[in-house]
Simulated scan of single mutants.
Amino acid sequence: MSKKPVVVYGASGYTGQLTCEFLRHYQIPFIAAGRNRERLEEAMKRVPGIETADYELAVVEHDVGALTKLFAGAKVVCNVVGPFLLYGETVVQAALEAGCHYLDTTGEQAFMLDMRDKYSAEFAKRGLYFGPCTAYQNAVMDIACHACAEHEDIDTIEAVTIPAVTPTVGSAHTLVQMARAKEYFLENGQLTAWPPAYSAELTAPFTTRTVLGIPGAGLAPPLWFTSHPRIRNLKALCAFGNRQLAEQIIGINKLYHNELAKLPEEEQVKALAKIADGVQNGMPPRENPLTARNWDTATGSGLTGRVQYTIYSHSGYQQTGLLQAFVASCLLRMTTPPTGFQSPSQAFGYKNVLATLERFGYAKMVKEI
């Protein structure tokens, strides 16, 4: 049973370490959990200021019973173990059984839709928040989309995220495994599947170059707006600052649909995992704000108007750690926390999420039109 209010599951990974770092900033006691004590110990040594944090280590197996036992007594579970299509449901089940709010860093639409349909009502019934996408690549784009949606003449949004990022091992495996799943945009109020291996040339803000936009990078905003009373159309694409990475992901998607999709599912997963190891098999360096610069733009349009918001930011993985800690802090402090399946912007207000990123110096949103 947990004696701390927050459990970080996957704390030995790159994103897990950053989540622990920002929980330390918020002075929130936590348990750093994973499957290997040696890796957990080494990871915590790399967390700045860890000597002032109130934390414990916990070694746990990846099954519902063991995780439920660990989570019992905690209030919030921060799950950073991906790909979530492969590993996420076990943690969702355990958090629900233990009576914990659940956060993760996914943007995998197939996983989100499945978990929403299976568990959202039960989380809400028990007064618990079910918050996937508490991470840079979805939460920041979602801020800009919600800013557009505030304008009453807007019914259509096109959003683009351009992260300057070196993927972690987990992110690389997520990007590759998502070749097996459909990606959706919102059209006339309905989720509509993108064509396999779709891509589009896009203009990067304030540059003379174009970037390659793809839907297969975990983009959740179309899902959050499926029940919006006015926003009927929403397309979201990711255009990595590293064009070679985007081309590599497109090539993997084509390979999957042309060859690997014919294999049994277990063999598909193994084949894609082997490919992912070639994309990234080590921990990337800590982000440098002078080079790890991101753009997230949402353009809203309607019959009588048009508006565009751009969020200029840096260090996306650090933003993810901050967002995890911020949402955990909100859930611990609120007397009536949000419940059920919601994005951070829906649950806590997009202005509050943006203000947190601004306060820590990570982001600034500008109204361009």
Rank of each mutant, 00 (worst) to 15 (best):
G73W: 12
K75W: 02
V76E: 04
V76F: 08
V76S: 04
V76T: 09
C78M: 14
V80T: 13
G82S: 04
G82N: 08
P83M: 05
F84H: 09
L85I: 09
L85R: 14
L86W: 11
E89P: 09
T90D: 00
T90C: 07
Q93R: 15
Q93E: 15
Q93G: 01
A95L: 06
E97R: 14
A98Y: 07
A98M: 06
G99L: 06
G99M: 04
C100I: 12
L103Q: 09
D104P: 09
D104C: 07
G107W: 03
G107I: 06
E108L: 12
Q109D: 01
F111P: 04
L113D: 02
D114K: 15
M115E: 02
M115Y: 03
D117C: 08
A121Q: 11
A121Y: 01
E122H: 05
E122F: 05
F123E: 00
A124C: 05
K125R: 15
K125E: 14
R126P: 06
G127I: 10
G127S: 09
L128M: 05
L128E: 01
F130A: 03
F130D: 00
G131W: 10
P132Q: 06
P132L: 10
A135L: 04
Q137W: 12
N138G: 02
N138H: 01
A139K: 04
V140F: 07
M141Y: 00
D142H: 10
A144Y: 03
H146T: 06
H146P: 00
A147T: 00
A147Y: 14
A147V: 00
C148F: 11
C148L: 08
E150G: 11
H151F: 15
I154G: 02
D155L: 04
T156R: 15
I157T: 01
E158M: 06
V160F: 15
I162M: 15
V165L: 15
V165T: 13
P167V: 06
T168V: 11
T168I: 08
V169Y: 10
S171C: 12
S171M: 14
L175D: 01
L175Q: 07
M178Q: 14
M178C: 13
A179S: 13
R180P: 06
G189A: 03
G189Y: 07
L191R: 06
T192E: 08
A193D: 05
W194T: 02
P195E: 13
P195Q: 13
P196I: 12
Y198T: 03
Y198M: 11
S199Q: 13
L202R: 09
T207D: 01
T208C: 00
T208H: 10
R209S: 15
I214C: 01
P215S: 11
P215L: 12
G216A: 10
G216P: 00
G216W: 08
A217S: 13
